[in-house]
């Protein structure tokens, strides 16, 4: 394919009520990239992801996913999505972990096709990736938040998507598993060639793993490779002391845009 743009956001503006949440945003995600999307709270990261997924429609501008306008897009098996709030799902739902992961295959199967034994096998493989296969029979509501999050990662992976969109997936996951998780994402990206778009506040860690960085602050205030980002950061904040923590740098990005 000549055009390898997986996601293309063309001068998109969006407002929920009066104020613009996204203003003239332009950016692309190319095949094979691991894009980290960063920015302070309320800067519009989740909004941008919701626009890309077609949950909400831009007031101005257009969005293409896999070279198709999101309005007509229907190849959902290519996209895996992990949302910001784990608790968005129905908490008391009486499903087993296995059933939840299998539901990730709905997009691949399409209508009028049934889940079969081979799909159970696939779901177990996905659970192995996130080291949750022991819990296959457990009820989803009886797991801890971090364990649930890992199950949802398995659900997103089970349909073999070529684009994975993650909105702060590491919230509620302990340090050990966060590291494992980034290793996993790195493997998916390099070995399996899955394109990743991930929102995160842990800038130190994610910029180490990601190939590209996008800074959002209503508009896109920076887009480039991770190295370029480090450069950009140095140039802009030479006055920032070494010991200053990530959060502060984070806030400065907000001030400069």
């Amino acid at each position: 394919m000549i055009d390898c743009k997986i996601v293309k956001v063309n001068s998109v503006s969006f407002k929920y009520e009066k104020e613009w949440a996204i203003k003239h945003a332009n950016f692309t995600v190319d095949k094979g990239q691991f894009v980290a999307m960063i920015g302070p709270n309320g800067s519009g990261k989740s909004t941008l992801v919701n626009l890309i997924l077609g949950f909400i429609k831009p007031n101005i501008g257009s969005i293409q996913v896999f070279n198709q306008s999101i309005k007509q897009f229907d190849d959902w098996k290519e996209i895996g999505y992990i949302s910001q709030q784990v608790n968005r799902f129905n908490g008391g739902f009486p499903a087993s972990v296995l059933e939840v992961v299998k539901s990730g295959l709905v997009s691949r199967l399409g209508m009028f096709r049934f889940l079969k034994r081979e799909h159970t096998q696939k779901a177990i493989e996905a659970l192995k990736i996130v080291e949750m296969e022991k819990f296959a029979k457990a009820k989803i509501g009886e797991l801890s938040g971090g364990q649930q999050q890992r199950v949802f990662i398995a659900r997103a992976l089970v349909s073999d998507p070529s684009l994975l969109i993650l909105d702060e997936p590491t919230v509620g996951i302990d340090a050990k598993h966060v590291n494992d998780f980034y290793d996993l994402l790195g493997r998916l990206n390099k070995k399996n060639g899955i394109t990743l778009l991930m929102i995160s506040h842990d800038i130190g860690t994610i910029t180490k793993h990601a190939t590209h960085v996008v800074c959002v602050n209503k508009a896109i205030s920076f887009q480039g490779t991770s190295d370029e980002y480090k450069q950009f950061n140095k140039q802009n904040f030479t006055h920032v002391h070494e010991h200053m923590d990530q959060q502060l740098i984070h806030d400065h990005v907000e001030v400069t845009s």
């Binding site: 959902w76 999505y81 949302s83 499903a95 539901s103 295959l105 709905v106 199967l109 009028f112």
Partner: peptide, 22 residues
């Protein structure tokens, strides 16, 4: 029976239903 998996996804997680093309 025909829509079991769609009904399941819709009941469990509406956002996921949307990104599953349900």
């Amino acid at each position: 029976v025909l829509f079991y998996k769609e009904l399941f996804v819709l009941s469990f997680d509406e956002d996921h239903a949307k990104v599953s093309g349900v």
